[in-house]
Computed example of a mutant assay.
Amino acid sequence: MSEYIEGNTQFSVLDLAPIVVGGTPAESFRNTLNLAQHVENWGYNRYWLAEHHNMPFIASSATSVVIGHVAAGTSTIRVGSGGIMLPNHSPLVIAEQFGTLESLFPGRIDLGLGRAPGTDQRTAFALRRGSRSDGHDFPEQLEELRGYFDPSLGTNKTGVRAFPGEGLDIPIWLLGSSGFSAQLAGQLGLPFSFASHFSPNSTMQAIDLYRRTFKPSKVLEKPYVMLGVNVIAAETDEEANLLATSLQQQFLNLIRNHEAPLQPPVENMEELWSDFEKEALKNQLGASIIGSPETVKQKLLSFIAETEADEIMIISQIFDHQKRLRSYEIVSEMMMMKK
């Protein structure tokens, strides 16, 4: 990727494979592959998919399967998880799944890991059944998983080996929205991705903790920070603000515990939310970058300068697929990425 005017920050994509009102998961997966192919041409660095469950507006619950679908339909862009919620799974199963993906698509697979359930507690129980894992043993699960890929670490105490998986060099990232994963990533010398797109008020604290606790490893010599950011770009500020109401409605429904597909834009959010809900959304979505090409460029450069992020992962929950494509294209044009 070519440098943009202020430095070497790279740009990537987080896709939730949104299911829109009146749409189907099949349509979402077609849109996902179409978007991946386009952003590959526009110079984006990696394309990640997120694990969520029991959410009628997100189709990427079987994350590893969708990663394989995207990797098969692209040729150069890195593809991975943003992330796999490790406590929902056996570390061995994840090692085998991602060992399979890396064997099929060598040098292109990332494994981003989180410790949250990616869902509500009832669904977490349905996923985990008798497992006692509630995320508190995430460091131990991580050690076991890493040991399946690299037996020399000595962290796999099971006596079981992962085929495929063993001996493969699959980058492992820790994902977080608080300080826990930031500190763990720093101590282990792993790359760290923070969810600024829904936890903006904790961004600087988490980055600082990661960088202060970072210890060089055979994976990384120095800290590497990627930040998730909601970006909705359009030809004008007015159009972008209109498109952003789909994202706002999504979070409003989450606050109200009302699960629904992604809603079309509305002219006036004031008719939908209370003052309390509006303030709550402002806290959650405060780092969102919404506007015309020049507005987006200015805000992105300011955000990068403030955080000194090595990479920005862009999330664009836009109802209309063509406008979603255009939003990512605008960012590529503004950041002078190779096309």
Rank of each mutant, 00 (worst) to 15 (best):
S2A: 09
E6V: 13
Q10A: 08
L14F: 04
D15W: 06
V20L: 03
V20N: 00
P25R: 11
E27Q: 11
S28Q: 10
R30H: 06
T32V: 14
N34T: 14
Q37F: 04
Q37S: 06
Y44D: 02
L49S: 10
H53L: 06
I67S: 01
A71G: 07
A71S: 10
A72K: 13
G80Y: 10
G80H: 04
M85D: 00
M85Y: 04
P87G: 07
V93T: 14
L111H: 01
G114P: 12
A116G: 13
P117W: 06
T119D: 02
R122D: 03
T123Q: 09
R128Q: 12
R128F: 08
G135A: 02
H136R: 13
H136G: 01
L142A: 02
R146A: 05
G147A: 11
N156Q: 12
A162F: 03
G165Y: 09
S177T: 13
A185W: 06
A195V: 07
P200R: 05
N201R: 12
S202Y: 10
T203E: 08
M204V: 02
M204L: 12
T213C: 10
S217Y: 08
S217K: 14
Y224I: 00
M226D: 00
M226K: 07
L227D: 05
I232M: 11
A234H: 03
S246Y: 03
Q249R: 15
N253R: 14
I255G: 04
A260D: 04
P261H: 06
L262F: 02
L262P: 04
P265R: 01
V266Q: 04
E271V: 12
L272I: 11
W273C: 15
K278P: 09
Q284M: 14
L285I: 11
P293S: 05
Q298A: 15
K299V: 03
L301S: 09
F303W: 00
I304K: 05
A305G: 09
I315C: 00
I315W: 03
I318E: 09
H321K: 07
Q322K: 15
Q322H: 14
R324F: 05
R324W: 06
Y328F: 15
